[in-house]
Computed example of a mutant assay.
Amino acid sequence: MKLISYPDFGKISLQHLMEKTNFIDYIRIFCKSGHGGAGSKHFMRTKYNAMAGPDGGDGGRGAHVILRGNKQLWTLLHLRYYKNVIAENGENGSKNNCTGKDGEDVIIEVPLGTVARDEETGEIEAEILEDGQEIIWLRGGRGGLGNQNFATPTNQVPEHAQPGEPGVEGWKTLELKVLADVGLVGFPNAGKSTLLSVITAAKPKIANYAFTTLTPQLGMVEYRDGRSFCIADLPGIIEGAAEGKGLGHRFLRHIERNAVLLFLIPADSDDHKKEFEILFNELEQYNPEMLQKDFVIAISKSDMLDDELKEAISKELPSNIPHLFISSVTNKGLTELKDVLWKTINQSN
């Protein structure tokens, strides 16, 4: 059984690897499962009988290409250098009713949340959501039957055996959708990375310009009594993201796996209501099913607001969605935010 998991980079230098991004969420790969071995057309020969009967064995099964979930992986980086995954063919059958050896299955380890598609049709062929979950992605061809299977009272010397079935091949894609309890949604530079760095041990890049975060960042939020939940800082959405503007589709697909969406709107926004509506509409256009998730709104950078401004902003926001005022700099409202998120996560499960 061949395992494709952590990379065997061989002669690739460490410096070369460091120059590359370590978060790969989309891979195009050519896969081919093994052909089944041919059945044998053979007749037993003994000392006293040169035609003692058919004894051709069956061919072995062609190797499968299998996907296996591994919770220790969080990126598809290890597959970057495996552009072709070719599984073994099954061995042919042989005399004395000997069955050919099955091909050695190829197991591709992938992070949880990986979706496998056929590139030509776009059809989803497998989804890996649990650690250790195995799905046969490309099934190997069955081995052919040897001629001993075709012997009958009226045909005791069958002159034919089956060929093995062909394997399956084609260009495939693996697409990672981040699995997290809470997804941070907001425009670029809304303060998502700063919030993540304060309430988790994650160390995202933080700067005062748009699209600081180009890949999802995950962090564990320590809650009370040793409990915790996972939160993902997702790259910022811009208006038109559902149509592919900016890095729209690449960003939005990571939101699909989150149980709760935390909308982060900065206090210094020109129009808080409009900003929420734009984010809401982008999600709806991309996938209407995402509107079935639980929403929470947090007004970030609220240390600059007085009670009168908070009241005015509250009137702009939807009354059916819980909202809080927080400040990642002063830690204001963060305990209350954790309480609301924990309650919402457990209500949605």
Results as ranks from 00 to 15, higher is better:
A52Q: 07
F211P: 15
Q148Y: 15
K172S: 10
S302E: 02
D105V: 04
F251S: 08
K47P: 00
M220Y: 03
N281D: 15
G186V: 04
T114E: 10
R117P: 00
K101M: 14
S33W: 03
F280H: 15
K177G: 06
N84K: 13
L261Q: 09
R28H: 03
I206A: 02
G90D: 09
L195F: 11
E222R: 11
L179R: 09
E316I: 06
H35F: 01
V198R: 05
D303I: 03
G93A: 04
N281K: 15
M18P: 00
E165K: 05
S314K: 12
L73F: 15
D131F: 08
C230L: 14
E284C: 11
K245D: 09
L262K: 12
A52H: 05
A259I: 09
F263A: 05
D25F: 03
L14P: 06
A116I: 01
I12P: 13
R227C: 00
F211L: 12
N189V: 02
P235C: 08
E175T: 12
L196D: 06
T46C: 03
Y286C: 09
A267I: 01
A210E: 15
W171C: 00
E336Y: 01
H64Y: 02
G39P: 02
K2C: 02
I299L: 02
E120P: 00
P266E: 04
